[in-house]
Design a protein around this nucleic acid. Structure first.
Lengths: 117, 117
DNA sequence: TATAGCACTATACTCTAGTATAGTACTTAC
DNA sequence: GTAAGTACTATACTAGAGTATAGTGCTATA
């Protein structure tokens, strides 16, 4: 039985906040699929709807709005008929790549570990 | 208006699965606070309960069970009076450090960006 | 004998994320 | 004039995450 060292809760929550911010931005069932779909290409609403299995229009619309608010995705409307709207990943959105890769690498290892137990 | 290149949905979902696994393990309101609290010290149930503001016993118990199942945390019972139970981060749990740091760094930048818009 | 501390569990509730389904506004092509 | 395509919005529902509150079993100390 080891000694229990007290943590400084102030310093701790200071570190926690950005972590939880980041996590919240990626959280939910659909944010990652959308971001990954946009990581390499520009896409329209209907493209995303087709490419992301089982997502509803409502969710897609809602999540895209969220991502736009956080400046990860840019929305461009073209004055065509019918209207077309393009969604692009911003440079800033691309800065998430490292985070997503870190998650992916760890997730891969985790799959192996849990499968082989 | 750019060309739209089709993505291979098979290859895409293959990459997505581990990312979502990782995200699921960290998801929810309390997983990260618990992991961060255990990152440096061994802690008992009551220590964690005190250190993590506003967490209920029910949630703490539930989330610790989850983390234990995923081999991120180890639970050790000591035959004292009253019983004491220690929670330790496993070596494997520590392997999440890089992911958490990546999240933290990005979250920090994001805070600055959003605040200064 | 009563009380207090530890590590939970039980029950009931609320609230939010996500689903299901349908409908809108616009215009061009038939 | 009506059908079809695009990018949504509205409404209603469901399920699961999280909250609030109370109670359990153990025993050492007062």
């Amino acid at each position: 039985m080891k000694k229990h060292i007290k943590h400084d809760p102030q310093a701790c929550s200071k570190k926690m906040l950005p972590i939880q911010d980041a996590l919240e931005i990626l959280s939910g069932k659909w944010k990652l699929p959308i971001l990954v779909a946009l990581m390499f290409d520009v896409k329209r609403f209907s493209d995303l709807s087709k490419e992301i299995p089982r997502i509803t229009d409502r969710m897609l619309s809602k999540e895209l709005k969220d991502l736009e608010m956080n400046k990860l995705v840019k929305r461009t409307v073209y004055d065509t008929f019918p209207v077309t709207v393009e969604y692009t990943m911003t440079e800033y959105g691309r800065s998430l790549k490292k985070v997503i890769e870190a998650l992916g690498e760890w997730g891969e290892k985790h799959r192996e570990k849990i499968m082989s137990e």
